[in-house]
Amino acid sequence: MSREWPLWEIFVRGRRGLSHVHVGSLHAADAQMALRNARDLYTRRQEGVSIWVVPASAIMASSPEEKDPFFDPAADKIYRHPTFYTIPSEARHL
């Protein structure tokens, strides 16, 4: 297990009638704390605002490359670079 708090992506709906929009990310140990921190950081506690927090590792992304088939069976992480993935502790030299 990582010794630091995992990464969460934050989506905020600023007003009724709008959709949730991605605003950034933060670190929290669990979902409740992520929601609280997101409120402090991204909404300064405005009333009536709705916040979604999602573990960054749970988000699947399509590839932006136009030549890649959209329905790529290897659906991938949102961030391209390998440091983002959890490396099992047994695997060395990674």
Partner: peptide, 11 residues
Amino acid sequence: PQLEEDVAMAN
């Protein structure tokens, strides 16, 4: 202990 808590305490 964490930047997020600096924000919370200040709030």
